[in-house]
């Protein structure tokens, strides 16, 4: 679980979605904290699908699954099983 969270934070930092020195709590909203918008979400989805070799079903594209580190981690864990 921690590895997935670190991977996502590394991706967000490497692609300039967030500053290197800023931190993100597990349940912080990515959209409300100004880290990502709809185009950024599309790119993040692409990254997740490729990195974890998963397909994200349409009904899982919700803020609950995509708007926080915890939500993303839970979703990946579920889909990667």
């Amino acid at each position: 679980m921690e590895q997935i969270k670190n991977d996502i934070v590394d991706y967000l930092k490497a692609n300039s979605f967030m500053d290197n020195n800023s931190s993100l709590k597990d349940n912080d909203s990515l959209t409300q904290n100004g880290i990502i918008d709809s185009i950024g979400l599309l790119e993040l989805m692409d990254y997740i699908c490729e990195k974890y070799s998963i397909e994200i079903p349409e009904d899982m594209l919700t803020p609950e699954n995509f708007d926080s580190l915890q939500g993303i981690t839970n979703m990946i864990t579920k889909l990667a099983k």
Binding site: D37, L42, E58, D59, L61
Partner: peptide, 24 residues
Amino acid sequence: QSPNPIINLSVNFIQWSRNLFEKQ
């Protein structure tokens, strides 16, 4: 400007994008 040539939208995603823009 956009590296993704094909973007398959979903109702959830369209709804979410709309709400994000409303907030912006």
